[in-house]
Design a protein around this nucleic acid. Structure first.
Lengths: 220, 220
DNA sequence: AAATATTTTTAGGGTTGTCTAAAAAAATAG
DNA sequence: CTATTTTTTTAGACAACCCTAAAAATATTT
């Protein structure tokens, strides 16, 4: 079965909402994520239900069938492998690969993905630290803590970022905050919950909101 | 200005017919190439004319404006760079890259093309021997003769193939007929104009039709 | 439990790109 | 130079995907 880009985007969105953000995939949530309207979502959901890619009952949140889940996982795999390619081989900045990978991910060819995976050396995590599912659909797991939830004195390395926003990633870059960068948590500032942390022996401050979107692998 | 895949395909088709095959781009020729109907072509041509990408007068063949030509050239550049990537980096067989490159070529990002070009080492010809236009839009030139037009005793190397058909390319592969392969032209067989040639000291036969689609760079 | 607010669906419409069938123009033949 | 054939365009329709506005269902408040 061949799916349009739009159909693929809906599957990805439902996956992201239900499996990654652990929220209910109701029409509004999907509409917000895909920057469209709830009525358009209803239309598309019906089509996907006919194709047995989602389970749908009127007025209830939708969920992916096994078939739908498989396709969504494969799209995520594609997206993350292409992001890895763009950063590691074409020397793109990690802040600028998301939108290009959005286009590349829709190219349908299982062999292409396998060859790309092989070429990149079977990476487990993409440039943002997000796990790359295997061909079989399993996601590599890791113990992560949000930077905003560390305690004074905690040390660790940045393992992933939870946003793809270009300005956010660029700003991190300027502080040398990249994946695997060691950091030490100093303290939370009472005033507005900003975070003080040490990077390469320099003290920096991050807003609470930014700290909530950075995941850390703690050192023992 | 952002163009749909369909619009891009039309520009490419008009370029191929007028600049490569040196024929008139009338609605039928375009329809055949794009596997659509003449009436659909008329519709699209009108849209492209409004966007000043083609010059169009009713009942006359269309041609590209400078603007349209620039876009078409850039698409060809994209297609051929991606084909090169697929063969040289992902180890695809040259017979199987065309359809994947058809999808990849539509990704719009000038910087991506430049980075890919740099990464591949600024190749001048793609895996089928077709010239890759530069960023500025100039096509590398070469002296080529069709295999079907050589004379007995002529020696040379295969410089390009004129078809992307999978079965054609696969068959060539099986005879070791790849780009840069040295060959010697033996003779034309009277019976049906088939070509006899020597490849790695072995005699082989090619149909007239296949020989017409293989270009040779003659040795002095 | 009724009134109100929110969410979801339906109804109707727009755009893009395709199609078939018929009309119009151009090319070819006698 | 008229008649016939071929090519091109128009007209009308359809599918995919999106929209707005209104109706229907559900959730929340009092």
């Amino acid at each position: 079965m061949s799916l349009s880009s739009a159909e693929q985007d809906y599957l990805k969105a439902i996956f992201a909402i239900t499996r990654i953000e652990h929220r209910q995939a109701n029409t509004n949530a999907i509409a917000v994520l895909l920057k469209t309207k709830a009525s358009s979502v209803t239309d598309m959901i019906k089509k996907l239900a006919v194709k047995k890619l989602v389970k749908y009952e009127k007025y209830k949140p939708v969920s992916l069938t096994n078939k739908g889940q498989k396709i969504a996982t494969s799209l995520i795999r594609s997206h993350r492998l292409w992001e890895t390619f763009l950063v590691e081989r074409l020397e793109y900045d990690w802040s600028r690969v998301h939108s290009i990978a959005e286009q590349l991910e829709h190219i349908e060819d299982d062999e292409l993905l396998d060859k790309l995976d092989h070429y990149l050396g079977y990476p487990k995590f993409d440039p943002h630290g997000d796990p790359i599912p295997t061909k079989e659909g399993t996601f590599p797991q890791r113990d992560e803590t949000l930077l905003s939830q560390l305690n004074p004195g905690d040390c660790g390395t940045i393992s992933s970022v939870l946003q793809d926003d270009e300005s956010f990633l660029e700003a991190l870059n300027q502080l040398n905050l990249c994946i695997n960068q060691p950091i030490e948590y100093i303290k939370k500032i009472d005033f507005d919950q900003s975070i003080q942390l040490k990077i390469n022996d320099h003290i920096h401050i991050l807003s609470e909101n930014m700290a909530k979107n950075i995941a850390i692998q703690k050192l023992p």
